[in-house]
C-alpha cells in the first residue's frame, strides 16, 4: 500500500471511466481523446524535463521519429499495433539516448535550441526524401492488434483502449518514479546542480535518464498519432511548430501533477477544434490568445486552478467565521 496515493487512485478512476466510456463515446470525441492521450504523453516527457529545470523546443524530433518509424514499418508490411508502437517508442528512445550524451551537457536556452536544431535536421531529411513523400508524407494503413483486424468504428475503439492502457501504465510509472530518490533528484538538479554533485550524484546522468525517458514517451505519442490519424507528414510531425505545441500544452497543464498533461492536451485539442470550427480565419489568433491568457492569469498552468479552488474553499470557511475586513 505504500505506493498508493491519491494521484494513483485518481488516475485509476479516470482509466476505468474512460475505458468504459470508450464504448459509448461519439466518434469525434474518441478521436480528440486519442490525440489528447498521444500529445499528453509527449507533454509528460516534457514535464519530467521541466521539473529538472530544462525546456526542450525540439521534442517533435522524437515525436516525428516515432511516428515515421512506425509508419515506415507499415510500408514494408508490418501492421501489428503492438509491434509498431513498440518499435516507434524504442527508435525514439535510442535516438534520445545517443543525442543525450551531447545534450546533457547543456542547460537553459542552449539545451532548448540544440534540441530544436536536431529536430529541424530530421525535418529537413524528411522533406528532402521523395520516397517518404517529402512534404506530403504518406498514408498509414489501419493497424491490427495481435491478429485481430477491426473494421470501421472498431478500429478507433480498439486503438483508444490500446492507447489508454499504455498511457495509464506510463503515467503511473512516471508518478512512482518521481517519488524515488533518482526521481526526486529532478528538483535538486533544478535548484542546485553543484550540491547534487557534492552529494555524490551525477547531474548529467540524472538529466540523461530523464531525457531518454522523454524521448521514449514522445516516440510513443508519435507512433500512436500516426496510427490514429492514418497519415504522417513532416509539417504535422517534425516541424518546430509541433515542438511549440508540446511546450504550449506543458505550459497549459503546469507541472503540478502527471495527470495534468492529459487535461492540458485535451484543452488544447478542444480550443483548436472549436476555434477552427467557429473562426476559420482567426483560429491561430485564438490559439495564441489563449496561451497568452494562460501565461498571464494562470502562470502555473491549469493545474494551479485546483490549488486556487482549494484555497478559496478554505478562505471562505475562515472568512465566514471571522468577518473582519481585510486591511
Amino acid at each position: 500500500m505504500r505506493y498508493m496515493d491519491k494521484t494513483i487512485v485518481g488516475l485509476s478512476i479516470a482509466f476505468v471511466v474512460l475505458f468504459c466510456a470508450d464504448f459509448f463515446m461519439a466518434e469525434w470525441v474518441r478521436f480528440i481523446g486519442l490525440q489528447s492521450l498521444a500529445r499528453g504523453a509527449v507533454a509528460l516527457g516534457l514535464l519530467v524535463l521541466w521539473r529538472t529545470g530544462l525546456v526542450s523546443f525540439g521534442h517533435a524530433l522524437y515525436f516525428g521519429f516515432g511516428a515515421y518509424a512506425a509508419a515506415m514499418l507499415t510500408l514494408i508490411g508490418y501492421h501489428d499495433a503492438f509491434f509498431l508502437v513498440f518499435a516507434g517508442t524504442l527508435a525514439a528512445g535510442v535516438l534520445a539516448y545517443l543525442l543525450g550524451f551531447l545534450l546533457r551537457r547543456y542547460r537553459a536556452i542552449f539545451f532548448a535550441l540544440l534540441n530544436m536544431a536536431f529536430s529541424m535536421i530530421l525535418y529537413g531529411v524528411i522533406v528532402k526524401t521523395e520516397e517518404l513523400g517529402s512534404t506530403d508524407g504518406f498514408s498509414v494503413l489501419t493497424p491490427t492488434f495481435l491478429g485481430y483486424a477491426p473494421k470501421g468504428e472498431a478500429v478507433q475503439t480498439t486503438l483508444f483502449i490500446f492507447t489508454l492502457v499504455f498511457t495509464y501504465i506510463i503515467t503511473v510509472g512516471v508518478h512512482l518514479y518521481m517519488k524515488t530518490t533518482l526521481g526526486g533528484m529532478s528538483m535538486a538538479v533544478r535548484e542546485n546542480e553543484i550540491r547534487v554533485e557534492y552529494l555524490g550524484y551525477s547531474a548529467e546522468k540524472v538529466i540523461h535518464v530523464k531525457y531518454v525517458f522523454s524521448g521514449l514517451v514522445a516516440g510513443f505519442g508519435g507512433a500512436i498519432m500516426a496510427l490514429a490519424i492514418g497519415q504522417v507528414d513532416p509539417d504535422s510531425m517534425a516541424n518546430w511548430t509541433v515542438s511549440g505545441e508540446f511546450v504550449f500544452i506543458t505550459i497549459l497543464s503546469g507541472i503540478g501533477n502527471v495527470g495534468a498533461t492529459y487535461i492540458g492536451a485535451l484543452v488544447f485539442e478542444l480550443i483548436r477544434t472549436y476555434a477552427f470550427e467557429y473562426a476559420p480565419l482567426f483560429w491561430q489568433f485564438i490559439l495564441g490568445g489563449s496561451l497568452l491568457a494562460i501565461i498571464m492569469f494562470l502562470p502555473d498552468g491549469i493545474w494551479s486552478l485546483f490549488g486556487r479552488l482549494r484555497r478559496s474553499d478554505s478562505s471562505e470557511s475562515s472568512s465566514s467565521s471571522n468577518k473582519a475586513p481585510s486591511p
Binding site: 491519491k6 494521484t7 478512476i13 493545474w303
Partner: peptide, 9 residues
C-alpha cells in the same frame, strides 16, 4: 497535491 489530483480526474 494528493487531494487535487482526484479532483482533476
Amino acid at each position: 497535491m494528493l487531494k487535487n489530483s482526484s479532483r482533476a480526474t
